[in-house]
Design a binder for these strands. Structure first.
Lengths: 200, 200
DNA sequence: TGTACATCAGTGAACGCGCGTTCACTGATGTAC
DNA sequence: TGTACATCAGTGAACGCGCGTTCACTGATGTAC
């Protein structure tokens, strides 16, 4: 009996393949990066034929977009949790942002990275998700900063955490140092500014 | 006469194919991104057979590494030029860094981006180029900043310009604003730090 | 309760594609005599 | 100056690969009577 699909077994029939595809796609994304996402590999891991996915997603692109949506939801949630109670400190939000990226590097890259190699539709969809997320974040910043040039401050902060997150994800950093203290120190510098050179 | 190769013509025979491959690869890189680099496409554009490349490069990877090397050389040069005469201001160096990335987005991404999808050898080679570049940069910073925590300052600065460069390359920013003034404002914030929230 | 049937989530086979690389070759170049 | 020859940058054909997607199908599910 190859695939008897007894009721109660964990065969897919009737509904849970969609969910299984997303979960598997997500681990594949973390293992192989956005470029490694492959419908055939997902199907292989689920021990299911490749075309079966087409009953749940229009294309591989659609799967990637669904993952990116998950990612933006989760990131937003984490940031909300980090900024919730205190109302002036931005450090915790920055740390939460970077921690999300470090916990989900493949997903983070899908969300924010390499716009270039994406196929048309995915590119547009993901781009608009990004822009929505950014709008939310800077709206939030607006409440915490003096009025003039909020947008510069938002861009400054986003650049900083985005850059630091990617450098860490890419393993470009001193392996010796403790990541969390490094993040902490860098974010503190965002508050104080770079030290001036010693007066000559 | 299909390929008569008269002396003085711009046929490749004897030596200039290597150069031509690098140039074409570089424009392809800018058009299609690192993921779009393709030996066959390069050959096609040069109107040359694909295997001919193997007389000059061991593999497609080797071409990519050669491009990355070019990139690091050029970036280093630009930074040197920007920091040469003045000795305390970091703004010009930051601006030069970002300007390099904006002028060569594909190359910049090859150099610093998406480590994940690279094939083994290329990955290692490019990674070590990056680390070398970073070491040079922070060595230079060491001369411009008060001693304690130079490495934090270097990481702060690198994160900021890297993040901002990528956001601009990806076209994630307000298309309305003028890029150069935005860069300028953000870099100035790196000196002063974020404004404090209004005292309650 | 038992049978006929529509639904639709799954299947295997096949499509066309572009890729990096290998192979045995060819034919122009430039050198040795 | 003229001929024989080694070199080696180029060639076309072919390899095996993995991919996304389409197609006509099958067979279990759950519903209507």
């Amino acid at each position: 009996m190859p695939h008897p699909a007894e009721p109660g077994s964990d065969r897919y029939h009737r509904g849970n393949l969609r969910q299984a595809i997303l979960e598997t796609a997500r681990s594949l994304l973390e293992e192989a990066g956005p470029g490694g996402l492959s419908l055939r590999e997902i199907a292989r891991r689920l021990d299911v034929s490749a075309p079966s996915a087409y009953h749940h997603f229009a294309s591989l692109d659609a799967i990637a977009v669904a993952l990116a949506e998950q990612g933006f939801d989760e990131l937003t949630e984490r940031l909300k949790a980090a900024t919730g109670n205190l109302d002036g400190r931005l450090g915790p939000a920055g740390a939460a942002y970077i921690s999300f990226a470090r916990a989900n590097p493949g997903l983070y890259r899908l969300m924010f990275g390499e716009g270039f190699q994406m196929i048309s539709k995915k590119n547009l969809a993901v781009r608009s998700l990004r822009q929505r997320a950014y709008a939310t974040l800077s709206e939030d910043l607006r409440k915490r900063l003096p009025e003039p040039d909020v947008s510069t401050a938002a861009l400054f902060l986003w650049s900083l955490v985005h850059g630091l997150a990617l450098l860490m994800i890419d393993g470009q950093l001193d392996a010796a140092a403790d990541p969390n203290t490094m993040i902490d120190k860098v974010l503190r510098l965002a508050g104080t500014g770079l030290p001036r050179r010693p007066a000559t």
